[in-house]
Computed example of a mutant assay.
Amino acid sequence: MKISSLNFKNNLRENAVLSLIHGKEMILKNEVKDFLTKDFAGQGYDETIIFEANESDGLLSAIQNNLGGGLFGSQIIIKVVHNEGRFPKALSETLEKIDLNNMNNIKIVIDSVSESISPNTKWIKDNKEFIQIIECTKLKPLDEKKWLRDKLSFLDKKDADKVTKHLFELNSSNLVAHRNDIETLKILHSAEKDSVSLENSISSSIHAPYELEDCLLNLNEKRSIKILRQIQQNDPNSLALVIWVLDKLISTSLMAKKSTSPKRYLENTKMWGSKISLYLSFIKKMESNLLNLSKDIFEIEKTFKGIKRLDAWKEVERLIIRICTS
Score class of each variant (00 low, 15 high):
residue 113 V to G: 07
residue 113 V to S: 08
residue 114 S to E: 14
residue 115 E to L: 12
residue 115 E to H: 13
residue 116 S to Q: 14
residue 116 S to L: 11
residue 117 I to N: 04
residue 119 P to T: 09
residue 119 P to R: 07
residue 120 N to V: 06
residue 120 N to P: 02
residue 121 T to S: 09
residue 122 K to I: 05
residue 122 K to Y: 02
residue 123 W to R: 04
residue 123 W to I: 03
residue 125 K to C: 02
residue 125 K to Q: 06
residue 125 K to E: 03
residue 126 D to L: 05
residue 126 D to S: 09
residue 126 D to T: 07
residue 127 N to E: 01
residue 127 N to R: 05
residue 128 K to F: 10
residue 128 K to P: 03
residue 128 K to G: 02
residue 129 E to T: 04
residue 129 E to M: 05
residue 129 E to Q: 06
residue 130 F to R: 01
residue 130 F to P: 00
residue 133 I to P: 00
residue 133 I to M: 05
residue 134 I to T: 00
residue 134 I to R: 02
residue 135 E to P: 00
residue 135 E to R: 01
residue 136 C to W: 01
residue 136 C to P: 00
residue 137 T to G: 01
residue 137 T to I: 03
residue 137 T to H: 01
residue 137 T to Q: 04
residue 139 L to N: 00
residue 139 L to R: 01
residue 139 L to E: 00
residue 139 L to T: 00
residue 139 L to Y: 02
residue 140 K to M: 05
residue 140 K to W: 07
residue 140 K to D: 04
residue 142 L to G: 05
residue 142 L to T: 08
residue 142 L to E: 07
residue 143 D to S: 05
residue 144 E to R: 00
residue 145 K to C: 03
residue 145 K to G: 01
residue 147 W to P: 04
residue 147 W to R: 00
residue 147 W to V: 02
residue 147 W to K: 01
residue 149 R to F: 08
residue 150 D to Y: 06
residue 150 D to R: 11
residue 150 D to E: 08
residue 150 D to I: 09
residue 150 D to A: 08
residue 151 K to G: 02
residue 152 L to C: 04
residue 153 S to F: 09
residue 153 S to T: 11
residue 153 S to N: 11
residue 154 F to W: 00
residue 155 L to T: 08
residue 155 L to N: 07
residue 157 K to D: 13
residue 157 K to Q: 12
residue 159 D to R: 13
residue 160 A to S: 13
residue 160 A to H: 06
residue 160 A to R: 03
residue 161 D to V: 15
residue 161 D to T: 11
residue 162 K to V: 13
residue 162 K to R: 12
residue 163 V to S: 08
residue 163 V to F: 05
residue 164 T to Y: 10
residue 164 T to W: 11
residue 165 K to I: 11
residue 166 H to L: 15
residue 166 H to K: 15
residue 166 H to C: 14
residue 166 H to N: 15
residue 167 L to C: 05
residue 167 L to P: 00
residue 168 F to A: 07
residue 168 F to W: 15
residue 169 E to P: 10
residue 169 E to Q: 13
residue 170 L to D: 09
residue 171 N to M: 13
residue 171 N to D: 12
residue 171 N to H: 15
residue 172 S to L: 12
residue 174 N to K: 14
residue 175 L to R: 03
residue 175 L to C: 07
residue 175 L to A: 03
residue 177 A to I: 13
residue 177 A to Q: 13
residue 179 R to Y: 13
residue 179 R to S: 14
residue 179 R to P: 10
residue 181 D to K: 14
residue 181 D to W: 10
residue 181 D to Y: 15
residue 182 I to V: 13
residue 182 I to Y: 04
residue 182 I to S: 09
residue 185 L to P: 01
residue 185 L to W: 02
residue 185 L to A: 06
residue 185 L to M: 07
residue 185 L to C: 11
residue 186 K to P: 06
residue 188 L to G: 06
residue 188 L to I: 08
residue 188 L to D: 07
residue 189 H to S: 12
residue 189 H to D: 09
residue 190 S to M: 05
residue 190 S to K: 11
residue 190 S to V: 05
residue 191 A to R: 07
residue 191 A to T: 10
